[in-house]
Simulated assay, not measured.
Amino acid sequence: MIFNRRKKNDLDVIRRKLVTFLNPKSPISEQYRTIRTNITFSSIGQEIRSLMVTSPSPGEGKSTTAANLAIVFAQQGKKVLLVDADLRKPTMHHTFNIFNSVGLTNVLTKQKALSATVQQSQLDQLHILCSGPIPPNPAELLGSYMMAEFLQEVYQEYEVVIFDTPPVLLVTDAQVVANQCDASILVVSSGQTNADTAMKAKEVLQSAQSKLLGVVLNNMSNKKSGYDYYYSQK
């Protein structure tokens, strides 16, 4: 995460997206830590090593949520890998201002080793795996046996693996990843996501045999407290 070459407007966006890193004492950062705690409590009896983050539709904050959850887990001392599994419209390289010349697609197609593609963030415990080149068949690649092999490999190196995926109602990619992860979280936006859409997204994830831990309600502003995020179990 290198910010000195960015324009002021870009920096403002980064500060907003990576609030847990740049302003860890803010009320919003505390909300992310609350989500982390809820994830930990919901995993009693079954350790959650891999977590998928998705949303019903674009623009609801799933990528921002995935990035900040990865940061707060790393701040807790966990060794974390944040994976940009949105192989259609990746954004993590923009969020962290890193290169996306190689990434997940190179690992899954056996073109590059995991060690040659992960990138170190400014947090010692957080590594990032960008999407890499956009493939012609994202869902097939994510559902292949190489993905299962990839998970087994990263479990040997990392305590927590967080996947950012495309919106679940647009393409099947999120369902494919959810089926292979220990748990999933659905991000919805206050004032944007209607109840029917949220319910449909929940049903789609459950049909993929995903363990849906709960819903993050994003952009729910409380002027008194300044909180913009709220977590509720399903």
Rank of each mutant, 00 (worst) to 15 (best):
D124Q: 15
E149C: 00
E157L: 15
F163Y: 13
L104C: 09
V171W: 03
R88M: 07
L141C: 02
Q125M: 10
V102C: 01
I98S: 02
M92K: 08
T109D: 02
L114E: 03
L142Y: 03
F99R: 14
E159N: 06
L82H: 07
C130I: 01
S101C: 00
F96E: 06
T95M: 15
E157C: 08
G143Q: 09
R88Q: 13
K78S: 15
C130Q: 13
S115V: 12
V168G: 04
L114P: 00
S131T: 08
I162W: 09
Y155W: 09
M92I: 14
D164A: 06
M146I: 00
D86R: 06
V176N: 06
K89E: 08
S121T: 15
K78Y: 14
Q111C: 07
V83M: 09
E157G: 00
L81Y: 09
V171T: 14
D173C: 10
Q175N: 12
Q175L: 09
Y158L: 00
D164L: 05
I162Q: 07
P138V: 10
L141I: 10
V107H: 03
P167Y: 08
T117F: 07
L169T: 14
L151P: 02
P167D: 12
A116V: 00
V102R: 04
Y155A: 11
L151H: 02
A139M: 06
V161S: 05
P90R: 11
S101T: 14
I134E: 05
N137Y: 02
M92T: 02
A148Q: 14
T109R: 11
A174R: 08
V102M: 05
S131G: 13
M146Y: 10
T172R: 06
L142F: 07
V168S: 03
A139S: 15
H127A: 13
S115W: 00
K78W: 11
P135S: 12
V118K: 14
S121H: 11
D173A: 12
N100L: 08
A148H: 12
T95V: 15
G143E: 05
E153T: 15
S101K: 14
V161D: 01
H127F: 13
A148W: 00
G103P: 01
